[in-house]
Amino acid sequence: MQLIRGLGNWPDAIDTAITIGNFDGAHLGHQAMFDEVVRTARERQLASTVISFDPLPHEYFVAQAAPARLQGLRDRYNSIKAAGIERLLLLDFDHEFAAQSADDFVNEVLIDTLHARHLVIGDDFRFGHRRLGNFELLEAASKTHEFTLQQSPTCISGNQRVSSTLIRDHLRNGALSEAATLLGRPYRISGRVVHGDKVGRQLGFPTANVALGRHRPALRGVFAAWAHDEDTGRRHAAVANLGERPTVGGHKLLLEVHLLDAEEQLYGHHLAIDFLEALRHEQRFASLDELKAQIARDADAARELMSRR
C-alpha cells in the first residue's frame, strides 16, 4: 500500500474509490467500509483509497484531554493495508485544515486532486469547518460532480454498536475477548525493541522493551500474549507487562515483553504484541524478591494458557 503524506504529494490524476475517517482500531465497522471500497475499485478499475488524519481531529481540538488511541500510526497503516487498500492519504489535521469549509474539501480534495468516482462514508460522518459537511451535502455534490455515494450502515455486534469508544472501554476494563470480537482480531500494539534498564534480566526474566512513542493505550496490566517478530517472522508465547513498574520506582509507561519459549537478541526488531488474556493488574510489591516470585507465577500462568492455544 502506498502511503501519501499531504495532499500536495498526491502523485497522479487516476480516478479513485474513497473512504474517509479516523479508522482508529480498524474495527469490524471500518473493515466493512474498506471492503466496499476495494470491491467497487476492482469492479470499476479505480484506485482504492483511504483518507485519514494525523493527528486525529479530536486530538487537535482537545489535545491532552483526547481519549487514548487504539492504534499507533504503524498499526493503523498495517490494518488498512491488510484490507487490500492501495493508497492511504494521510492529512495533517492542523489549523488550516480545521478551517476548511465542507464545500472546499469536496472540491479541492475529493474532486480536483483525488478525482473521486465513488465515496463510502459512515453513518455518522461529518466534515469541514464546524462539522457542517454531512451526507446531504455529499449527495448534492455527487450529482454535480458525477460520483457515486454509499453510506455504510451501523455495524452491530451482539446488541451493541461497534465503535472505537466501546473497544476502548473494554480495554480499560481488561475485557480482551470482548475487544477482540469487535476488532475481528486480538488487540495489538507494535513497535521497535529498544534498550531498557535491564531490571527484568537482573530478576532472571529478560524482557524486550517495545517503544510506544506518543502512543498511550487504554490497556494496563500483565497479559498472556503472542509476540510476533516482524523481522524474522517468528511467533513466541509471551508475558507482556504494560504499565509504569511501580515496584522499581517507574513513572514512564512501558511495554515489556518476556518470551516464554526462547531468549533471543531482539534489539532493533519490530515486535507486534497480540494481547490474549489478562493475568492481573499492575501492582506495587514490597521487595524485588516478591516481584520476582510474582513474575514466575505470571510466566507459569501464561505458559498454561498459551499451551491451550
Rank of each mutant, 00 (worst) to 15 (best):
D197E: 13
L56H: 13
E59A: 03
A141N: 11
T40F: 11
P186I: 06
F53M: 05
A141T: 12
D229G: 14
L114K: 08
R280Y: 10
P11Y: 08
R76Y: 04
L253R: 08
Q151V: 13
R117S: 05
T49M: 12
Y187N: 03
D123K: 10
F205V: 04
D35K: 14
T16W: 07
T148V: 09
D124R: 07
C155T: 15
A272C: 13
F97Y: 14
H170K: 14
H269C: 06
Q294W: 02
V199S: 02
L219D: 02
V37S: 10
S307W: 04
R126A: 11
R44W: 06
R235P: 00
L110A: 09
H95S: 14
A175R: 14
Q265M: 01
R234A: 11
T181V: 15
L132R: 15
L266K: 09
P186R: 07
R76E: 05
D197V: 05
F147S: 10
D112S: 14
Y267R: 04
D169R: 14
L110Q: 12
A83S: 14
L182A: 01
V248G: 04
D92C: 06
A175Q: 15
V210N: 01
I18K: 11
L259A: 08
L271R: 05
S164W: 06
R303D: 11
E256W: 13
D231Q: 12
D274V: 01
T154F: 00
M1F: 05
Y60G: 05
L276R: 07
H251G: 12
R39C: 02
E230K: 13
R130T: 08
P11S: 04
T247C: 13
P217S: 06
L219C: 03
A41I: 13
R131T: 01
Q100W: 10
I14T: 11
I14P: 00
V248S: 13
D300W: 01
T165S: 15
L28V: 12
F23K: 09
L137F: 01
Q283G: 00
